[in-house]
C-alpha cells in the first residue's frame, strides 16, 4: 500500500474535500474512471434524446391532455421537491465520508442511513411518476426517452443505494476506520455523480 504519511504534501482544497488528504487509493482511481465511463453512457442516452427531440415537430405532450410535464410542474411541487431532496442527500453522504475520515463510524452510519431513506423516497416518487405517465414506452420518442432516462437513472440510484446499504452493513462488522475507508469515499463520489446526472435529466425532461 502506498505511504499514508502525507504530511508535507501541498493541499488541493477540492481534492481534500472529496477524497481527503491522503493519496488516492487504487479503488478511488477505479471509481473516478468508472464515473468517466458512466458519464459517457449517459452522454449517449442524452445525445439520443436531444437528436430525437431536435428532429421532432411536436415533442410533448404526445397525446394532448395525457401527461404534460410543464403542467405537472406548475400544479405540483413534488418533482422539484424530490429533485432537491436527492441532490441535497449528497450532503449527508459527504458528511458520512468526513466522519469516517476522523474514524467516527457512528457518524458515518447516521449519514448513510439518511441517504438511504432519501434515496428510497426518491425511487418511490419515481414509481409514482411512472404511474402518472399514462403512456407506453413505444408511443413515441418522447415516451421512450422518458422511460429510458428516468429508468436508467433510477437503476443507478438503486445501485448506489445497494452499494451504500452493503457498506452500512459491513460497518457493523467493524469495517472502515480513519485509514481504511476507500469504499466509503468511492460510494460518496458515486452518489454525487448520481445526483448530478439527475439535475441534468430533470432539466431536460421537466424544464426544457
Amino acid at each position: 500500500m502506498a505511504s499514508r504519511t502525507a504530511a508535507r504534501q501541498p493541499v488541493n482544497p477540492l481534492k481534500s474535500f472529496f477524497v481527503g488528504n491522503e493519496p488516492m487509493t487504487n479503488g478511488l482511481w477505479g471509481m473516478v474512471f468508472f464515473i468517466f465511463s458512466e458519464i459517457m453512457f449517459f452522454s449517449g442516452l442524452i445525445a439520443a434524446y436531444l437528436a430525437l427531440r431536435e428532429d421532432a415537430l411536436e415533442w410533448a405532450p404526445l397525446i394532448e391532455g395525457v401527461y404534460d410535464h410543464h403542467a405537472i410542474l406548475e400544479a405540483e411541487f413534488r418533482p422539484v421537491f424530490f429533485t432537491i431532496l436527492l441532490v441535497a442527500s449528497s450532503i449527508p453522504m459527504q458528511l458520512a465520508a468526513f466522519a469516517i475520515r476522523k474514524g467516527n463510524r457512528g457518524g458515518m452510519k447516521l449519514g448513510m442511513l439518511v441517504v438511504m431513506v432519501i434515496g428510497t423516497a426518491f425511487l418511490l416518487n419515481q414509481a409514482v411518476e411512472w404511474m402518472h405517465a399514462d403512456f407506453a414506452i413505444g408511443d413515441g420518442p418522447y415516451s421512450a426517452t422518458f422511460y429510458l432516462l428516468t429508468g436508467f437513472h433510477g437503476a443507478h440510484v438503486l445501485g448506489g443505494l445497494l452499494f451504500i446499504a452493503f457498506l452500512w452493513m459491513r460497518s457493523y462488522l467493524g469495517h472502515f476506520d480513519a485509514h481504511r475507508n476507500t469504499a466509503v469515499e468511492a460510494a460518496t463520489m458515486y452518489w454525487h455523480f448520481v445526483g448530478a446526472v439527475w439535475i441534468l435529466v430533470f432539466s431536460l425532461l421537466f424544464l426544457a
Binding site: 428532429d55 421532432a56 415537430l57 411536436e58 404526445l62 397525446i63 408511443d139 413515441g140 420518442p141 418522447y142
Partner: peptide, 9 residues
Amino acid sequence: WTAPRAGAL
C-alpha cells in the same frame, strides 16, 4: 407506400 411520419405522434 406510406408518407414518412413526423417525429411526434
